[in-house]
């Protein structure tokens, strides 16, 4: 059996109300009031009458973002996802383009904002959409739980 890892997981995506408390938590952790450094985004689904959802890194084991990084700033993390080394990053944006679900965001300084699965935001999700849990690698990547 593979080693368990802690990751930010979706408990029930249909419960998302689009409040974005997670986005604000992410930048607040970095000492900012706002969303510039946030690696998670709350969106409506073609308007709020169709509901809302959150977008963040799915912690791929074969991470396209890391594969296209020319400087090795975006490195695959054991158990899935990436570790981002900001000082190595030239801000080329390849990682942003490579992510199929558009889960890497561009900060105002041009560098990427990506979820590192620290779990800080989960404590601020008021409606049970997000949780920070010890999971089997890969198993948590199902959206239906």
């Amino acid at each position: 059996m593979s080693k368990k890892v802690r990751r930010l997981v979706i408990k029930d995506i249909e419960k998302c109300v689009g409040c974005g408390m997670c986005m604000y938590a992410c930048s607040r952790r970095k000492g900012e009031a706002g969303i510039d450094a946030s690696g998670i985004l709350a969106v409506s689904l073609s308007g709020f009458e169709r509901g809302a959802t959150v977008i963040f890194c799915r912690a791929c084991v074969e991470a396209p973002c890391a594969q296209v990084c020319p400087t090795g700033a975006m490195r695959v993390r054991e158990g899935g996802g990436v570790i981002y080394h900001e000082t190595d990053c030239i801000g080329c944006g390849n990682c942003i383009d490579a992510c199929t679900i558009h889960a890497i965001f561009r900060r105002s300084d041009g560098k990427p904002a990506v979820c590192v699965h620290c779990g800080y935001c989960a404590d601020y999700c008021p409606h049970g959409v997000l949780a920070y849990e010890e999971v089997e690698p890969e198993s948590f990547r199902r959206v239906i739980v």
């Binding site: 109300v17 689009g18 409040c19 974005g20 604000y24 809302a52 008021p126 409606h127």
Partner: peptide
């Protein structure tokens, strides 16, 4: 239910 941005109350 939906929420305004940055409000947990929805």
């Amino acid at each position: 239910r939906v929420a305004c941005s940055h409000c947990p109350v929805a």
